[in-house]
Write a protein that binds this DNA or RNA. Structure first.
Lengths: 336, 336
DNA sequence: CCGGTTGCTGCAACCGGTTGCAGTGCGTAA
DNA sequence: TTACGCACTGCAACCGGTTGCAGCAACCGG
């Protein structure tokens, strides 16, 4: 005999009373609750999530789907989501698609989740039409963080606006020769994010009548190494920009290293700005437009938990805030 | 009516046959399997992990416990563990202690896991005696990765040996004035790791009759920022070392930045070596002793999955391999 | 003294699968 | 023709909790 039943036998109570006592339901006499608790401890009772899940239809777990794990943004979000779930006594199940090559099927084919979660948070994913439909047929509340996701409820910064603001900041410093480092992170990032940020950059230039130069548009693959290599290539070209807009902080870090390797000074010779708010920026003096993915994660978790608690769903979420952090990597354009 | 039952009714078969058909058991007629599959698709059947978990006592999930999420090492391991679990069709449940302040209780109090997992991987944790006992009473297979963990089965590199080797490498290059950057990561790391690595360092010096100098022993808190600040302090002291042994790559990166800020050259003025194999090392030219946490994660997962598949448990695991990556951050000691 | 609350507990069905055992129908060998 | 084995399917109990409803005793006001 096992579980709750065993406690029932040992205390002379019924299964139902024990069940209620363990959950502190008000309809149980305080003395009974104490007795049951004591016995449970004594017997080393371990509740079975499967059993209660089966009976209630609730798992007390939330799934988080990431394209890959090893990316700054996802990890920050994960940290935030986790913190909030922990507070609420929910578990976190991590579904990693393992890159684009990985099996998207995995999550979108409904049978995989096997009703394991009560709600789902999807990170930086854009969906095919049928995937979106799949998502809708899943009965649990869902939320997407990061990157525009047409047709599904979504939380994140306004990538276009941030990029545009960042570029305008450089323009405001007098820069006219501005390079862009962006590019697709094939397996990791929302495929829309690089595009949005690039567009914001391009539009800012356009309003100032500046033609973007293809040799100043680097593909940094949204990584440190990529940013470094892209910057090195740009510096190797015939003409040199006076500023660089990197679509992510990690690429900006790479760019900074490449610039220093070339013997140039920041910001005297070359200004750099990024987007993200990565912790390394502090030491490296990176001027950046910081988002707070931890808070985004927390917020997403709170929204979903509220719905699970019975609150009416919020159909629309405001874009997440961006904070400008001015450090030392960007300065006035050198006077030609 | 729901689930398997519904399919049974629709096909005119019994629950049991449907159940077996869905699992492709050999005792079911191929034609029946096809029919059941078709019906299941048609009805949009979603299996319930809770129900099968309850019936079989297996959850097809493995738990991973981390002290905090946002650390390079843990994330790499997570990636490896996940890859292997995915292959095997297992889910990954992430338990974050959320720093030392966080609730260790959470995991060690048996009732929290609520039989949610079939096996448990613990990252860089040292245990109190009673926690170890708790762990033993949990019925499922368990494995610790990273940092020595007396009394429990454990996987990881030999921290002492690596640190000693790294230091001896610097000694071999003629360095005698060697600084150490280590220090406790209060909330993140196995409390034993910094100690082991420091000991390896100290012992290597000792065998060469070198007295460690306290002003050259920096606390870098196992972070980029920490490494930077520690190095800056060391450089600000009266005398300057000719080499630095950083107990982690991230601290080494910080040190490199600090050294360059001071206008010194690497490795002409100052050599740097690290431990880890962080991806940034490539660009920064860091000479390091690389471990492969992804592979450690994969390996750990494989070990546990094998046990879950019925293989006899392996009581002892060899230390994980370390690979020396010689790049450009360390060179011969400048001749005084 | 009675009818009605109030507070607590028990009964039994149910959640959705899994599994040991007992059929059933058919082919085949004796 | 009969007996037997084989391939397949069904019955019913079980996994360990949850919950609607009923039951019971003590207590209340009238």
């Amino acid at each position: 005999m096992n579980g709750i039943q065993e406690i029932a036998a040992a205390t002379g109570l019924s299964k139902s009373t024990v069940s209620r006592a363990l959950r502190n339901l008000p309809s149980v006499a305080p003395s009974t609750i104490m007795a049951v608790r004591r016995k449970a401890d004594e017997l080393g009772y371990i509740p079975s999530s499967a059993a209660s899940g089966l009976a209630t239809g609730r798992t007390r777990a939330v799934g988080v789907v990431v394209p890959v794990i090893d990316r700054w943004f996802y990890i920050q979000v994960l940290e935030g989501v986790d913190a909030e779930l922990r507070r609420a006594g929910y578990d976190l199940i991590l579904f990693n698609l393992g890159g684009l090559a990985g099996d998207r099927e995995r999550v979108f084919h409904r049978s995989i989740l096997r009703k394991r979660v009560d709600a789902l948070i999807l990170l930086s994913l854009v969906f095919e039409d049928d995937e979106r439909r799949q998502l809708e047929t899943m009965e649990y509340p869902t939320l997407v963080i990061g990157g525009p996701a047409p047709g599904v409820r979504h939380l994140g910064i306004d990538d276009y606006a941030v990029a545009r603001t960042a570029t305008e900041y450089l323009l405001g410093l007098g820069h006219r020769a501005i390079a862009h480092i962006g590019g697709q992170d094939r397996e990791g990032l929302n495929t829309a994010v690089p595009g949005e940020r690039h567009e914001g950059f391009a539009d800012a230039l356009a309003t100032h009548g500046i033609e973007p130069r293809p040799e100043w548009d680097g593909n940094g693959a949204f990584s440190f190494q990529g940013g470094h290599d892209a910057m090195a290539r740009i510096l190797a070209s015939d003409s040199r920009p006076t500023a660089v807009f990197a679509a992510s902080d990690e690429m900006a870090f790479g760019a900074i290293v490449a610039i220093r390797e070339a013997g140039l000074r920041i910001p005297e010779d070359l200004s750099v700005v990024g987007i993200d708010g990565h912790a390394y920026g502090e030491v490296l003096g990176l001027t950046t437009f910081s988002q707070d993915p931890v808070e985004q994660g927390r917020f997403a978790a709170r929204v979903l938990l509220a719905e699970l608690a019975g609150q009416p769903p919020v159909p629309w979420l405001d874009p997440a805030p961006v904070r400008f952090i001015e450090r030392t990597s960007a300065g006035p354009a050198p006077s030609a």
